[in-house]
Amino acid sequence: MALLRLLAECESYGYELVGRLHELGLKQIHEGSVYPALSRLEREGSVTARLVSSNSGPARKYYRPSPAGYASLAECEVAWTTLVRALEPILSRPVPRRPQEART
């Protein structure tokens, strides 16, 4: 979902996308997980790709969401928002020092 969202904001190639994730604080996400994820999105038809020649080597493959990708992104965002809303009341409560004894 994060990849689709970032690609919806600005088309990117693999390494650039990893850099954008790192800038957002997701430094634990490495190239080795992002590149296959992009391939999977492409194969699913969620993104389209185009080659753009680079002055430092082979052409770079820039991805952007396809119409199906936008639809999938909208669904994911609704599901995520619903989940966060459902969890929020639980996570907002203070954690007690000890769990309450079970009532028998």
Partner: peptide
Amino acid sequence: RSNLIAAAESNGAMAAVSQLG
């Protein structure tokens, strides 16, 4: 190759390859 070259230009090839895991 294009991603690794882009990464190597920023951080060096050793870091670029190790970032792949």
